[in-house]
Write a protein that binds this DNA or RNA. Sequence first.
DNA 1: AAGTGGTCTAGACCACGCC
DNA 2: GCGTGGTCTAGACCACTTC
Lengths: 231, 231
Amino acid sequence: MKEGTSWTQIREEVLRRINERIWQPGELIPNEADLAEEFHCARTTVNRALRELATAGIVTRKRKAGTRVAVNPPHKAVLTIPIIREEVEAKGGSYRQSLLIRENRSLPAFLAGAFRVSETTPLLYTETVHFSDNRPFIYEERFTSLTAVPDFENADLLAETANEWLVQNAPYSGGDASFFAVSADAKLARAFDVAIGEALFATERSTWLAEAPITHVRLVYCPGYRMRTSF
Amino acid sequence: MKEGTSWTQIREEVLRRINERIWQPGELIPNEADLAEEFHCARTTVNRALRELATAGIVTRKRKAGTRVAVNPPHKAVLTIPIIREEVEAKGGSYRQSLLIRENRSLPAFLAGAFRVSETTPLLYTETVHFSDNRPFIYEERFTSLTAVPDFENADLLAETANEWLVQNAPYSGGDASFFAVSADAKLARAFDVAIGEALFATERSTWLAEAPITHVRLVYCPGYRMRTSF
DNA sequence: AAGTGGTCTAGACCACGCC
DNA sequence: GCGTGGTCTAGACCACTTC
């Protein structure tokens, strides 16, 4: 049929009225039926536009109570956690990795809180340096549960990074991540060729599949690295 | 009417088939019409389910090419950037701020790349320490454009933080953020009572409204702080 | 009880993109 | 060309929430 207004146009118009304070924060905006009449379109189309705005946190919707302009702008940013090889190559660098350690280890005590496997779970520990244009870029320390991913013990980690192998072979249902600063210890200082105590950006991530822990990884980035996002 | 299957049920069933590798990564899944027939529902309902999965990055969709299981799990995390007062109070701490500096400044050269205002734009510079239970929590340095937000010059920043005032009074259309590590300089070392050179976690954010820069802020967190998120 | 958003249907046309 | 997803319609019933 293609008459009236498209849902994206309605979304933009509503956004405009909110940004120009025609509809104030906290204020009730017209209901779907009225907006459909104003825009000469079906109520479904208005619904789509407002639903997207609600998902984005711009408005809040409740049955019977109606649709209101959200009081707080959505202080949210989507963080994309890239595959290291892709991050390096996206910046035009050449990627290389060096596998330093690969051995079975039990869970170290300091990880008991972050990585919830029992002390007897067999784990594979790997330590890898990722290079960008032959300069050390990321220092990776990873524990992977061989209970959750038995095949990982036989993975060829020289051809493929642990990250890539797991992405291809171990689905996960959730995870958590943290971001912080560390001082370079002797090992990191040597790896990055900086002084001991240098401030480095680091992240830790755990992933699991239906409550079963899969892997825990700590990445320490080279000096000066910034993780970026837009919103 | 309420027959067939709801779109959430379809979404869950598709997710199940993907997680159980019934549909492999990269593989083409049946088209909307066929799935609608299988689930005894309208094509619109299948469309809704698959659209949500595409938004979440679980599948990729192209006209004519069809719907495929995404090769990479969505390495995405939604980062909520909290209001500092709320972050402190959510952890059960008592919040207090101390406004150290409030004066007009022109744009410092080192920010020219990050905060794109002209050199002649009048800016208000504020420097604030945020406390949690009377311990210094965050050191904030902020530049705010008085062209974009003239009223900010008269804001009562003792009653309300700059962040809160801007959230209430200055809508924004976008922004970017970066996350990194810094070494404590003399000022930060004194503020947090740590040694010079200590590694601290920091973020920088800029926001703008329709290309017009509003504010640029650098937050340096207390030693040991971790920013966390789940996915 | 009544108003409002949430969802579903059946059908239609359109837009993109592979061939 | 033509198959596939993207969108829109008009109508209907449902579910939740406030009154």
